[in-house]
Design a protein around this nucleic acid. Structure first.
Lengths: 117, 117
DNA sequence: CACGTATATGCCTAATTGAGTATACTAGGG
DNA sequence: CCCTAGTATACTCAATTAGGCATATACGTG
């Protein structure tokens, strides 16, 4: 019953998730790409599976893991209450910067933070 | 040098952050509202402050804490790579549901997940 | 059915951390 | 000044957990 937050607190697990978002992978592929010992990979995958972040399908002796979306939602939902707060701050920063360099494009930042609800 | 992810893995800290997003609070106010022992509050605030989630200003013997936006960005940025993935899934689910109940409005879900980038 | 490959699990250890308790520090107010 | 309120910190303990290693299990192939 670990919260999704505790699960993604571990850097290796985040790495696995970031790898799986591109496409599904077998344990061996994850092991090689992330240069982790196999038991480490398997154990993290176990945690991720129990928490609903991934699921596995069997392919002969291989287990192929793929992402599941739900737990990410939980994190995103929690984060949501802070969005207005932090985009207000970014906007204020932008206005401040605009007064110093009226032509500097801050698009990058805007796209990332100011998503209208 | 704790990652923001490790910081928000702790439920009491998330509670403190959720409280502070409404408005700044003194240690005593946090203590009373969250019904936590004072040293616990102070310790978590210390962690949050070191990680840049909050900052404190002095008001006589009181310390008033308020939120800082930056660390939230870090989490949101990481989460970003999964957004397309999970909204694809939600969309698929919606299409599926639409075929069962062509008139059911799934607005709620749409607003939360399908934010165009 | 023996064997190799692919993956999971069990055990141990070291490190981290949150809670509890007591105590230290600081700023006013009488 | 002493006293109190408000907050921070030190210390101890218990629990959790990630890593390393060895081993077990499952599957496919000759």
């Amino acid at each position: 019953m670990e919260s999704a937050f505790a699960i993604i607190a571990e850097p290796n697990r985040r790495a696995i998730l970031s790898l799986l978002v591109r496409s599904h992978q077998s344990v061996g592929e994850i092991e090689r790409r992330l240069r982790m010992p196999q038991p480490t990979v398997s154990k993290h995958l176990r945690v991720l599976r129990d928490a609903g972040f991934v699921e596995s399908t069997v392919d002969a002796q291989r287990r192929v893991y793929c992402l599941k979306p739900e737990p990410f939602q939980e994190v995103d939902d929690w984060l949501d209450q802070f969005r207005r707060f932090w985009s207000d701050h970014v906007d204020a920063l932008e206005r401040h910067l605009d007064r110093l360099h009226p032509s500097t494009p801050t698009k990058e930042t805007k796209e990332k933070t100011r998503r209208k609800r």
